[in-house]
Amino acid sequence: MTNRKTLKMTVNDTVRNVEVATNETLLETLRRVGAVEVKCGCEKGDCGACAVLLDGMAVDSCLTLTHTVGTRAITTIKGLGTAEAPHPLQTAFAELGAAQCGYCTPGMIIATQSMLTHDTATPDENDIRHGLSGNLCRCTGYTKIYDAVLEGAKAMRETEAAK
């Protein structure tokens, strides 16, 4: 039998106590506790649909064991922004048609946020291709995703500059 542990998890700024099996993936835990905005596409790290931020760094939640997360803050697409207070990437993805079926979108935006904060805030199209290469999209051909990332990154820089 697998061991179980009780953990303190921070998901989108809400702290909760969760009992998990030691072989449970973060994807399984998050969806079990209701964070179903984290999507399951392959459970093998091939598609990126389940990406979340751990202390601001994108990981595939299907390849992360929950008990190894420790005190790192977990952010899903819902923690990035809301309809009332949208994140610039969310606005850009919606307005520029970068979400079609939308199933890859949460992971795609999370991966973009991670790239913009850790790699470059001023990406060109080549940076975007590299930064999002772990996130499959089958609907858009990536073109409108490139547009949305460029636009969203610009809006983020402008917001930053205005501070």
């Binding site: 899903t76 819902k78 919606a94 307005e95 939308g102 949460p106």
Partner: peptide, 21 residues
Amino acid sequence: KPRTRTDAPGKVFGKTPYAGD
């Protein structure tokens, strides 16, 4: 016109329930 689709906001904010949710 190139309008924002009605289903787009739900998708980018993680609010759209898919069948598996």
